[in-house]
Simulated scan of single mutants.
Amino acid sequence: MDYAPDTTLMRQGEHSTHVLILLDGHVKVVTTSYNGKTVLLALRSRGDLVGELAGLDLSPRMATVQTAGPVSARALTSSEFHSFLETNPGAARTITGSVAAKLRLATERILDYSSHDVPARVARVLVRLLHDHGVRTPEGLALGIRVSQPELASIISASEAAVSKALTDLRGRGVVATGYRRFTVTDVPALMEQAGFPPKSRRIPYS
Rank of each mutant, 00 (worst) to 15 (best):
V188Q: 05
T87Y: 01
H82S: 04
A123L: 04
G172Q: 02
E139F: 10
G69E: 01
L191I: 07
P189R: 02
D187A: 07
P119L: 01
S114V: 02
R46S: 14
E139V: 03
G179A: 15
L41T: 04
D57H: 07
D112A: 10
T67V: 14
I110E: 15
G51C: 12
R182A: 15
E52R: 07
L130N: 08
P60N: 06
S16T: 15
K200M: 03
R146D: 11
S59N: 08
A42Y: 00
R61K: 15
T137M: 15
D132K: 13
M10F: 04
Q194L: 14
L152H: 04
S98D: 10
T77C: 05
E108C: 02
V147I: 11
N88K: 12
T186K: 15
G172R: 07
Y34A: 14
T7I: 03
S33P: 00
E14G: 09
P150C: 06
T107I: 12
S159D: 09
G196S: 12
R202I: 06
E52W: 01
A166Q: 02
L170S: 00
I95C: 07
N35Y: 09
L9P: 01
R136H: 12
T94H: 11
Q149S: 04
R74K: 08
E139C: 03
T168M: 08
G179Y: 02
L49T: 06
L9S: 13
V27S: 05
V163H: 13
Y34I: 14
L152E: 02
Q149W: 11
V185E: 09
V71H: 05
E151V: 03
E52Y: 05
P199Q: 02
A177G: 06
A4T: 12
S83Q: 13
R182Q: 14
L143H: 03
L56I: 15
G196H: 06
M10I: 04
S115N: 07
S201K: 13
L56P: 02
L23M: 12
G140W: 06
T31H: 11
E14W: 03
R182M: 13
R182L: 09
S72V: 00
V163R: 05
T96V: 14
G51M: 14
R109C: 02
A190Q: 06
R146S: 10
G69H: 06
H82G: 08
S72C: 05
Y34T: 12
K200C: 02
G25R: 10
V30T: 10
T94Q: 12
L170N: 00
E139H: 15
S78K: 00
P138M: 11
V127C: 13
V30A: 07
S16F: 01
A190R: 09
L191W: 02
A106G: 12
V185W: 05
L129S: 08
A63Y: 00
E52T: 05
L41M: 14
V127N: 08
